[in-house]
Design a protein around this nucleic acid. Structure first.
Length: 918
RNA sequence: GGGUAGUUAGCUCAGCGGAAGAGCACUCGCCUCACACGCGAGUGGCCGCAGGUUCAAAUCCUGCACUACCCACCA
């Protein structure tokens, strides 16, 4: 078999080809199967407007790693793809488009607009899903869902109706978060608070004089009260001034009346606990229609409400003729000017406070009174909390438990209605007939199927104009994708099975997401899962960090610091991107990315490529058959690398099980580069070029065995390059009939056999490696040309070390470029030689004529300082009675050995300096 | 105001109870028959500060100081 392998790995030549190969061979698909354990992940559905950004790349790389790992472990692994309609965000995109065409949705009308939305959705297609294919994601494409497709919509309607009929969904007029730009209400969590330096204005309010009681004169001077506010324009809607009931300063003013400046409207002074006497002046203007706290105060004191700001953020006629129509900020300016002119503006202080912004368009939120639909969350929250406190739902890292619980504990009813058109229209129908059946108007009806007539009186009906919060459908995602509420039969039409998707795959195994949507999405899925499926939607939540740029800033289009993952894949290869992301994916930790990290990962891919190339090239020239490993005796290097490999299997497996993907990536990198390549391959070269046929074949066997295992362990993280190499390697591994899996991705995950681990080989090999490194250091420091062979003398008193060196002279000769080795236990120090002492082995390199005396002495002195430091530390430890008595015996023994080695080292090096000086 | 995480080599980060580590950068030497996207060697750290627990602390505990993020009806 002749193989031509390029010197440099070329990702662009293999990636698309392999993805096609996987798809053609149905490597990603899963069907319910009795007796096989499912492992299921549903994708956090990206928005249909989306293009793949680095956050998606991270999120989906991690999911793919987990799903590939479990699939190889023998689970029936399913990863469900899909997209989210994205409510406001998506509507905004199309509205912008319309604006550029000189029209808007209102001119178009609801039906035409929705047509436009759907055609746009069709046009933009599933761009992002195709980009996930570039990333190598092993999603079961036959199961692709969309939150507004038939299956998911049915789930949404059913869920709404059930909640409505249970009385958990209600309609009410409340103060809600209103985005004046998006023209819709938002839930509390869709409001982003940003700290800003605002101003706190102190305004003088005149108190209406009391009617003088009999016999007393009216107060000579006018009385005043000063209020502090950050929003002076809302004073036009004030219906009271409130003070704390315990505030002595104002106690006697409670019940009096204020003459509101600018309008001269009369409003009362009330007492309310919500007022903080220590803040500002201790007196608060109360604007119930535009502030949540004021709204509550107004409820308690039964104050009227005056709406002075409309849905566009402009002042209403109620604000007075002078201000009506002005934008809220223009009104602020005007009000301040007018107050100033009247001498009522006393003080303007800098005031840091946080302001709510729309999470979709960043416009400042306006609290407005509005009729909306709400979902009662109290009971659902309690159950969602219990799932975590009972230990059924686990977070990785666990530190997210507390924030999750705190959030649920303080959660208020969820405003689920939006005044936009793109989304699931609220399935509530109002009877248009005023009379109804028996003279009374009919109650509204919720229905999962469209209603034409009122079920009560048969009259015409009108559907509620609002749509549901996009997160309502997202909350149902883990079961709506499996066909809930149907669930009886499989959603895959050509598959006849007794097991339904829903019962087989739900609850799913793990949810992988960033912490930014923990509340927005994760907590709600748990609530809804418990509500409708009576079971949590997943038992584990793996929360990864956020991708930042190299200076630690969040990547955003507006900052212009985004790194385009598609560009990275093109430049460095998909596997390099994936490895780089994996490397820094410690659970819960944000990561900084830069070109450097991709470059390192690309180099690693190339290293894998070339090491494999080395193995494959030798396979062609050496007669080889599987099974040699069992027949021929193994050498030290063989047992060593096998031990290391087996440890690797153990560690990588447990790391992936714990979602420590960064650790898995590092372990693999370390093993492959600094063990397999740096040492095993280098030693294998000696044997492959040697005359010992048995040693040759064994080395080749181990090279293949370990490479094959490594590739499988590496596969979840770097799927393309591992498959590409595997496809060639497999031809040598087994005859075609023996190959059960066509692809590495369905080949069995390596298993760890502790019994075969040879601990002894690690220590022995360590001697070889340390001695070689020490000799290389001498060569390098003494400027011995790399090509020049040298002689070396070992003085070893310890038998074990001595026999290891004795037995592995060919290793040493090749690795350190030696022409002659002498080993003894009482060797005379040769004159003019450089020295090193490692692991009890004294090394002499005779360098007559070559040695730089001063340099060597300086080098040795430095070594002595280190050794003596070590000596001192060990002595102190051993002199400590507590240490001897309480530390484990192994530890005490270890320190004794270290002391012995350090003493020997210091002593020998000192002797050597002496002899050099003579 | 509450919460969470972080602070280790110039940079990015690992280590989380028993000898300070990696990659990049830097210095020196190498086109050594897999790889210059490479090989060999080296320089570089009172492991944020202060206490405490322990025979032993970068590692556990308590404060403090910064940094970042999240939550909150700070008028």
């Amino acid at each position: 078999m002749e193989i031509e392998i390029p010197k440099v790995y070329e990702p662009e030549k293999v990636e698309d080809k392999l993805y096609d190969f996987w798809q053609k061979n149905s490597q990603f698909s899963s069907l319910p199967k009795d007796g096989q354990k499912p492992f299921t992940i549903v994708i956090p559905p990206p928005n249909v407007t989306g293009v793949l950004h680095m956050g998606h790349a991270l999120n989906n790389t991690l999911q793919d790693i987990i799903i590939r790992f479990r699939r190889m472990q023998g689970c029936n692994a399913l990863w469900v793809p899909g997209t989210d309609h994205g409510g406001i965000a998506t509507q905004n995109v199309v509205e912008k488009l319309l604006l550029s065409e000189g029209t808007n949705r209102h001119k178009l009308g609801r039906d035409k607009f929705l047509e436009r939305m759907w055609s746009w959705r069709k046009e933009s297609g599933d761009t992002i899903l195709n980009q996930l294919k570039k990333l190598g994601c092993s999603l079961d494409w036959s199961r692709t869902r969309f939150t507004m497709d038939e299956v998911c919509s049915k789930a949404v309607m059913t869920a709404f109706v059930e909640l409505y009929n249970k009385g958990l969904i209600y309609r009410g007029k409340r103060l809600v978060n209103w985005c004046p730009r998006c023209q819709t209400a938002l839930s509390d969590i869709e409001v982003e608070h940003e700290e800003e330096i605002g101003k706190l204005w102190h305004i003088k309010y005149e108190i209406k004089p009391q009617k003088p009681s009999k016999g007393k004169k009216a107060a000579a001077e006018k009385e005043h009260l000063v209020v502090a506010t950050t929003r002076p324009e809302t004073m036009l809607g004030d219906t009271a001034v409130a003070v704390n009931p315990k505030d002595k300063r104002y106690k006697k003013l409670v019940g009096r009346t204020i003459l509101l400046p600018l309008t001269q409207r009369e409003i009362p002074i009330v007492a309310d606990e919500a007022v903080d006497a220590t803040f500002g002046t201790g007196a608060v203007k109360v604007t119930p229609a535009h502030d949540p706290t004021d709204f509550d105060i107004a409820q308690r004191s039964k104050l009227p409400m005056i709406v002075v700001i409309d849905t566009k953020g402009a002042m209403t006629p109620e604000a007075g003729a002078k201000y009506a129509g002005l934008d809220r900020y223009a009104a602020r300016k005007a009000v301040l000017e007018d107050l100033e002119a009247q001498g009522l503006l006393l003080e303007t202080a800098q005031h840091p406070h946080s302001i709510g912004h729309c999470y979709r368009c960043d416009t400042v939120i306006e609290p407005l009174i509005s009729e909306q639909w709400f979902l009662k969350v109290e009971d659902m929250s309690k159950r969602a909390m219990k799932a975590v406190t009972d230990g059924k739902l686990k977070f990785y890292p666990a530190s997210w438990e507390k924030p999750y619980l705190l959030w649920l504990e303080n959660l208020k009813d969820w405003c689920i209605s939006r005044q936009i058109w793109w989304g699931h229209r609220i399935p509530v129908y109002y009877c248009k007939s005023e009379k109804g059946k028996d003279g009374k108007p009919c109650k509204p009806v919720a229905s999962a199927v469209p209603l034409e007539k009122c079920p009560n009186c048969g009259g015409a009906v009108e559907q509620d104009p609002d749509v549901l919060d996009t997160w309502f459908s997202s909350a149902l995602w883990p079961f709506s994708v499996f066909g809930w509420p149907n669930g009886k039969e499989s959603q895959i039409s050509d598959f006849k099975s007794q097991i339904s998707d829903l019962s087989y795959y739900y609850p799913t195994s793990v949810l992988v997401t960033g912490h930014e949507i923990l509340y927005l999405w994760v907590a709600r899925m748990v609530q809804m899962g418990l509500e409708f499926m009576n079971n949590i939607p997943f038992s584990e939540v793996y929360i990864h960090g956020i991708v930042r740029d190299k200076s630690g800033k969040k990547m955003s289009k507006s900052l212009g610091n985004v790194i385009d993952p598609l560009g990275v894949m093109k430049k460095y290869g998909t596997d390099a991107l994936r490895f780089s992301l994996s490397q820094s994916a410690a659970p819960g930790r944000d990561m900084q990315l830069s070109d450097d990290s991709f470059l390192g990962a690309r180099n690693f891919a190339n290293k894998m490529w070339n090491a494999s190339r080395f193995v494959l090239m030798n396979l062609q020239s050496v007669f080889w058959e599987p099974g040699y490993m069992a027949i021929w005796p193994l050498e030290l290097a063989d047992t060593w690398i096998l031990s290391e490999y087996r440890q690797l299997v153990k560690d990588v497996t447990s790391s992936l099980e714990k979602y420590d993907i960064d650790q898995a990536a590092r372990l693999l990198y370390e093993f492959f580069w600094s063990k397999y390549c740096d040492w095993y391959i280098e030693i294998a070269k000696i044997r492959l070029n040697g005359q010992d046929d048995a040693s040759k074949k064994v080395a080749l066997s181990i090279l293949i065995e370990v490479l094959g295992g490594f590739l499988r362990l590496m596969h979840p993280i770097m799927p393309f390059i591992t498959e590409e190499i595997w496809q060639t390697l497999i031809k040598f591994l087994r005859s075609p009939s023996q190959i059960k899996s066509i692809s590495i991705m369905t080949y069995k995950w390596p298993e760890f056999d502790e019994a075969k681990l040879e601990k002894d080989s690690l220590a022995k090999m360590q001697i070889i490696m340390d001695v070689v490194s020490a000799i290389r250091t001498i060569r390098s420091e003494m400027n011995v040309p790399p090509g020049k062979p040298i002689k070396v003398i070992f003085n070893v008193s310890e038998k074990d070390a001595s026999s290891v060196l004795e037995a592995h002279q060919p290793y040493l000769k090749a690795l350190a470029k030696l022409e002659e080795i002498n080993i003894g236990s009482t060797v005379e120090r040769p004159p003019q030689s450089a020295t090193a002492v490692v692991r009890g082995v004294e090394i002499f390199v005779p360098l007559a004529g070559l040695i730089d005396l001063e340099k060597e002495i300086a080098r040795l002195e430095k070594e002595i300082v280190n050794a003596e430091g070590e000596e001192k530390r060990c002595e102190q430890n051993l002199a400590n009675e507590g240490f001897i008595k309480r530390a484990p015996a192994v530890e005490v023994e270890r320190v004794r050995t270290r002391l012995k080695d350090a003493r020997l080292k210091a002593e020998r090096l000192k002797d050597n300096i002496k002899s050099l000086k003579n």
